[in-house]
Structures are given as C-alpha cells and as structure tokens.
Design a protein around this nucleic acid. Sequence first.
DNA 1: GACAATATACCGACTGGTTGGTACGTATAT
DNA 2: ATATACGTACCAACCAGTCGGTATATTGTC
Lengths: 202, 202
Amino acid sequence: MQMTPAKIKLLNAALKIVRTNGYEATSVDELCRDAGVTKGAFFHHFKSKEDLAVAAAGYWNEVTGKLFATAPYHDYEDPLDQLIAYIDFRATLLDGRSIPEATCLLGTMVQETYESNPAIRVACCGGITGHAETIAEIIRAAKARHAPKAAWSAESLALHTQAVIQGGFILAKAKDDLALARDSILHLRRYVELLFHHAKED
Amino acid sequence: MQMTPAKIKLLNAALKIVRTNGYEATSVDELCRDAGVTKGAFFHHFKSKEDLAVAAAGYWNEVTGKLFATAPYHDYEDPLDQLIAYIDFRATLLDGRSIPEATCLLGTMVQETYESNPAIRVACCGGITGHAETIAEIIRAAKARHAPKAAWSAESLALHTQAVIQGGFILAKAKDDLALARDSILHLRRYVELLFHHAKED
DNA sequence: GACAATATACCGACTGGTTGGTACGTATAT
DNA sequence: ATATACGTACCAACCAGTCGGTATATTGTC
C-alpha cells in the first residue's frame, strides 16, 4: 500500500498518542497537530476518526509483523527453542522503552471500543489472533515433536501467551513499572518449560 | 462509609457504564441519566469526573472485597487447595455473565488513564495490588508447606495470576467471547499445579 | 418544646470551550 | 481537464463544570 506523507505521519501519530492516552481521549485535532498536518488532510485520508483507528490497527500489524518476521527466534531448529526464544524476545522488547512505547496498540484500543465500535474491535481481534496464529504454528511443531499426547491445544496456548503479555501491560500501567510485565513473561516462560518438561516425563 | 441514595446510584452507574464503554467515553450526563439523578447531585457528591472515578475504584474494592472474603475457596485447609480453588472461583465468576459484567473496572480504567490521570491510576493500582496481596498470603503459606525452596516469589506469582485474568479479559473483548478468558485461567491453573508438582519432586 | 440558624442533599438552567465533521478553496500532477 | 492532496474557515452537538435556588434534616438557644 503506497502512502502519502501526511497519511503516514497521521498513522504514526495515532500509534504514539493512542497508546499513551487511549482512543477516546485522543482528538482529531491533537492527531493533526502531532502529525503537522491539517484537518483537511485528516478527513481526506480517513472518512472518520473510527476509520483512522481501523487503519492504525492495520498499520500496527504491518509494522509489528515485520518486526516479528525478522526477529531472531526463527533461527532455532527446534520449535520448542523457537517458542522459548520468542518469549524471551517479547521480554527484550520492553528494554529501554517507556510504557506507551512498550505496550500494544490493539490491546489498548479494544479495551475501550469493544462495545461501542465494532469495526475497531474486529480490526484489533484480527491483529491479535493473526499474530497468535504465527505462534500457534511454532507451538504445533513443538508439540508434535516433544509432547504429542499433551491435553492442551497449540491454539489455546498461543492465545494464552498473548493474554499474559497483555495482562502484564495492564499491571505495568497500574504500577507504572514495566518490570511487572517482565515478571509475568518470566512466569509464562516457566509455564512453557514445565509444560514440555512434564510431557517428556510421560 | 454511609452513602446517600443518589451517590450509590451514581457509583453503580459508573461500575456498569465505565466497564462497558470505558472512562473517557462515559459522560457525566450519561451517568446521571442512568442513575436517575441530576447534574447538581453529581457535582454535589463528586468534585469532578475524575473524583467519581477514584470513588468508583474504592467502591469496586468494597464490593469485590466482600465477594472474595465470603468466597468458598477459604474453606480448604491446605493453602495450595485454597489457591487452586481461588483460580477455579475466578473461572466461575465468568459464568452467565456478559463481558461488561465479567470484566474488571480497575483494569479497564487504568488502561486509559495511566498517563493522563495519576489519581485514577493510583486508585486502580491500590485495588489490584491489594487483592493480589490477599492471594500472595495464600501462596506464601502454600509455598512454605509444599515448595519452600522454589525460586519464584509468592508476590510475583500473585501478581501473575492477576495479569493472566486481566489479559484474558482483553482477549475476550477482542474476540467477543468470554471463553478465551476461561481458557487462560485454565492455563494458569495448570501452571500453578505444575509449579508445585515440580517442587515436590525435588 | 418552640423557633431560628445552619448544614446537607439535590435540582436544572446555563456557559465557555472542545469535539468530530463539513464546505469550499487551491496547488500540483497527470 | 480532471483527479488527488492538501489547507482554512466554520458549525452544530456535546462536554465538564458552575451557579443560584429549594426542600429537608440537624443543631443550638431560650
């Protein structure tokens, strides 16, 4: 998708401001000010504020999709190693970042809009489940190799990884400390290890 | 704290509407309409909308505090059984409820307000960590009895339980299905079992 | 126990600023 | 000559919050 400078600047502003203040508290004027464009430009590219949010979710998926596609966890041969490395990678994504920079646009937006803005909810759902599916693939391979008889499903565990990460962000926001998100990711890592360690014993 | 009818009605309206639409999207007028009182009553009892949010967080802690204090998980003798029963109890709290009814006011509010409304953030933090502390006590006892040498801390695991629950709510909102929250709680249950099962082996 | 004084609980019209969105103009590229 | 990409001025609706008012309890005084 080829994008004009004003559109990209508006999307980047949305990523930044919405993650900081949420969707409802973000005004179109503030978005325009931050992007350095006018309202005319805004409504030329997006037919409404809701439309911008949906586009921002898509843009977020593009940006983070590339980040994960080129991340080092793919380099391991054993899918279980890949999974553990993915979890560690999620932890390193917190390093040196402020809370708004570390948190997820989709989780932030869907919390506010799930009842009132179906279009945004669907866009956020697509992004989260889409990413979870890439992790589910890794888990499927790990399960096939190391725990073929395990009772849990790869899809469910993949979604659980996302729940832990999102929940960690909420605690981090509440306590104003990303260390809480890191701690929860560490528990997640231990869970996965125990899960496969346990399966190997049988 | 003795409360006048209008105040209680406003707080109950806040619990309902904020969990549905979020803090920013909830207007004072809507709150008054739902509570069946006027704006005069609102600003008589609360000096601002932010003040209402802080009071609502306190009210939430009161209501849920009683719920957990009288919950059946306390009846077990073994603290590990209590912990597992607590997790199961959290799962049953999802039964027959709509998403707004099942979700946590504090997690919803802090997501939107952590940067812009410090007073609300602090109130949410207090509620979450306060509840986590009651769980940490149970975990401390369980650890002392069953896993005294374990590497993880009771406080950290207690916070992790809250992160999983909060994260489950986000996935549930995204997919419009509370089953996702239930699934994550089930993974949490398994994690705790593995954690203690593993410790006993050593 | 009568009466005034004061405080509390609530009402509803109003205000000034902000909101998302529109109408219309212009510059540039094809 | 037409479409795209903006800019500027503007608007009605809505927002949180105010203000002067009333009704009812509570308290102090004799």
